[in-house]
Design a binder for these strands. Structure first.
Lengths: 130, 130
DNA sequence: AAATCATATTCCTATATGGGTATATGTCAA
DNA sequence: TTGACATATACCCATATAGGAATATGATTT
């Protein structure tokens, strides 16, 4: 199976940086496609395609105004994301104590097996051999 | 260009539902891979690969304990996500007023060009002609 | 050293992009 | 109706999965 479709849910849709930019841009006020194109410096077809994805997952709403299409962020659809991340907030909010311990030099990091670096892989994954 | 790598940032990494499950599971306490495999009912190689992605973007930490590897969520890495979504919170928190208007039948949705449905495409995108 | 347990990596493949470019569709103006 | 303007789709392609199966790597025990 390949990666899930970008249109499968809000999580996948906002994984694309450009789409987040768009959402930020049209959060306050609805905007026609052309304005997004000019302001964010993206190609028009690209913007239309991103908007399509955002529309499919409900992250934006559209309204026609003459020949223009006015898009606007539907913040409500971002809520699930916010709520998921919120469940982790308590952890970093509690981390003040850890910072304190560190400042006091309570433990030596190089003394235990704590590890954060990522070991290199022999082959850089791109699978294709023969 | 294809889609950005899942390891490009936290947004892409958590787009995969399975990875979010893992993060939830090892948020409170570090766990060995085998336990994740059993508890979440995923294949062992699959779990290892997901953990690798999470590790690369800093969403988890590892520690060796004998032959086992103990993983744990690094909540701090989820913070950027939380903060991005937080910028939209003010919008849905302000929407109470809209709900009120609706309840009062202030406007008829079917009367303006407001639209939320997604028009069908002729071809379902899967590009291949001849 | 050999056997065993715990994880990581390799290889393969179907699938879904996202960017360009060209073109279709839709709407308003002359 | 024809032309101009605004957006959406169609096509093509290079790239990165995620899952499954098989195997490699590491560490511990006998």
């Amino acid at each position: 199976m390949a990666r899930a479709a970008t249109t499968s849910d809000a999580f996948n849709a906002v994984a694309e940086p450009r789409r987040r930019e768009i959402l930020n841009f049209i959060a306050l006020q609805e905007r026609p496609v052309g304005e997004i194109v000019d302001s964010l410096g993206m190609e028009q077809p690209s913007v239309s395609k991103h908007l399509r994805v955002l529309l499919e997952v409900g992250l934006v709403n559209v309204r026609r105004d003459g020949r223009r299409m006015l898009y606007r962020t539907n913040a409500e659809a971002i809520r699930p994301l916010h709520e998921w991340t919120e469940t982790f907030a308590r952890y970093w909010r509690h981390q003040l104590s850890r910072v304190k311990e560190r400042a006091e030099g309570k433990s030596n990091p190089s003394n235990d097996s704590e590890r954060d670096f990522i070991p290199r892989r022999k082959d850089d994954y791109g699978g294709s051999k023969n």
